[in-house]
Amino acid sequence: MKKLLSILLVAVMLLSLAACGAGTKTLRISTTTSVNDSGLLGYLLPYFKEATGYEVDVQSAGTGAAIQKAMDGNADLILVHSKASEEKFVADGYGVERIPFMYNYFVIVGPKDDPAGIKDSKDATAAFAKIAASEAKFVSRGDDSGTHKAELKIWAETAPNAETDTWYINAGKGMGECLTMASEQGAYCLTDKATFLSNAKNLDLEILLAEGEDMKNTYSLIACNPEKLPDIDTEGAKAFIDWMTGDEASALIAKYGEAEYGSALFYLIEE
């Protein structure tokens, strides 16, 4: 088993070496699926390249995996949305500084007829209580992603037990797949607004609750720490953070999604 592990390890290291060698000015960003699925980076990166000359490789995964990849030395910076994990990443010395720079709101989506009657709830906590009381189906990400952690935080001590509460479906999947499952099962789901809107036309779901006090979703940038992780492109990470928090990107982000969905998908954090 040790031998097998070491062989695998060598293979992984060779692969990451190969990734480092390719191109001189390539920046590696590890981000979450919700950022990537919204199309935001695809929209911003050509402008970033024009301004700085950097090519960017975007790897997307759930926040848990996105952070793990950076801890394994496979990224120069991370763009994620889970405050507690981010603070731990910085505290453990892997990240330089947590820079919250934009936010949006999680929304609760569900079937049109709203069987649990959550529509006029004052916040997500109240809506979740109604769902649990009526035992209406609810699809959970269950994958340690930022959205999953946000969901667990809203449930707090009232979190259902997936083994005994059969209405609580722990899917262990990405946002898009969970929404599809919720649509199939006539279930509720907590989602980031951007992913829902970009998939909405294929879904039998509606936004039933938006913008509760406990539904804020903050995205942060963290440059990886070269003291802890070797071969980090510190300059590139700094260039990206400076550009993302600068005027050009701010104007672009504030506009993003307006043409297609009638409202912006992300809001900037005013300093």
């Binding site: 848990g64 479906i169 262990g172």
Partner: peptide, 28 residues
């Protein structure tokens, strides 16, 4: 199957889930 916990989760989809969570050694 949907990889639903306590219902349709099998070894391979559990491995995929742990990989997505970043628990690479547990997945292995």
């Amino acid at each position: 199957g949907g990889n639903i916990q306590w219902k349709t989760r099998v070894m391979t989809t559990a491995i995929m889930l742990e990989t997505n969570k970043g628990n690479f050694s547990f997945a292995l």
